[in-house]
Design a protein around this nucleic acid. Sequence first.
DNA 1: GGAATGATTCTCT
DNA 2: GAGAATCATTCCG
Length: 201
Amino acid sequence: MGRKLPRKFYSRTDTVQIARELLGKLLVVPDENGRRVSGMIVETEAYLGVEDRGAHSYGGRRTARNEVMYGIAGHVYVFFVYGMYYQFNVVTGPADHPHAILIRGVEPVDGIDTMRERRGDRIKKDRDLTSGPGKLAIAMGIDRSLNGADLLGDQCWLEQYRNIADAEIASGPRIGIDYAGEDALRPWRFWLKGNEYVSRR
DNA sequence: GGAATGATTCTCT
DNA sequence: GAGAATCATTCCG
């Protein structure tokens, strides 16, 4: 069992670099009985604050929903989209530097039976448990109650897990932000080449 | 107050 | 590959 990544990991200003480094880290969210449910991060996307049309904080937009993006690095930003899915993000950089990284895919490590229960019987292949941001939120038990949680606290956290070589990492445009114009083309999505739990390949 | 829409997924065809 | 599901949040008036 690893130990929690330090605040310093999150508070650096280069969010794109942090998004790369999140690959291979373990996301741990204990269940209601305190048992570990975890997955190795295999896909991330960086959202770069005020100058990124794809980000909720574009142009300095600051609302009740995205308030935690403006807070201390190493906290969790959870929001709800499409009337049915939660998205799990990690806040990076200094305060008032509203950057965040979306976790889009994890490979199940601990508590895979719990994940199967949460996802329901219709999920036949384990591959479909956590290969997408909405799916992994369901499987990991992520909802609104985690919004604003501290990754150095006990509700959820990240641990060192596997070392990833640069050659294993691929990058490309982010998903689902066509409205962002030029910024939709920026290669700020990262994933582990060939991993089954990447949302789209 | 009301209308529009989204950092998605699933189910057909 | 298209269309539905489904609602909190945002923006405008």
